[in-house]
Amino acid sequence: MVRNLVTKLEEAFLSLLLVSMTLLVFAEVVARFGFNAGIHWAQEVTLLLAAWFVLFGASYGVKVGAHIGVDVFVKLMPHNTHRFITLVAVGLCLVYCGLFLYGSWIYLSKMKMIGIELEDLPVPKWIPMSILVIGFVLLIVRFLQLGWKVVTDQADGFHFADEAEESMELAKELEETALATEPKEGANQVKKEGDK
């Protein structure tokens, strides 16, 4: 239940960030071309949304297996060796997160102490920058979860995104629609002409 709600919220937030970036840049073009006007804060806000999108999304990516990596070699190993190597890799990922979390914390504290505002909006700079710390904390949580899954033998690797697999969804969808409906279009035209 809770887990489902968290996933829904993460997905909605991530999508919202992407859509807002897109619409903001689109609005800028419309304003400039259609109304001969500029949106003076648009560029800064778009870029900050981008930072949030990436740093927030990275942990979600670990959860759903959206990152990419080279797993052809580890997959050749026996199951338990694979699990062991994955644990080492997860450990190194946690080292990465730890180093960045530490650095981000110092950076953020310094910015908060100096107290500078954003260029175009009257907002203290450290507030939007806090995603650095938030992002790495979330990333640590996700890697710990993954590590636990490997320890308890529910997973053996990182489960990387597979563009080929995703493209196959498109193929499946096409096959299903070709069977379900009697289309007037493409597939059928090819079939008709093939038949004669």
Binding site: Q43, T46, L47, F100
Partner: peptide, 22 residues
């Protein structure tokens, strides 16, 4: 490490042309 974190933040928030990708 703080300046490395700064560098990463710069990489995610200072490159307008990169936004063509998403």
């Amino acid at each position: 490490l703080a300046s490395i974190a700064l560098k990463l933040f710069e990489a995610t928030s200072e490159h307008y042309t990169l936004l063509a990708i998403p």
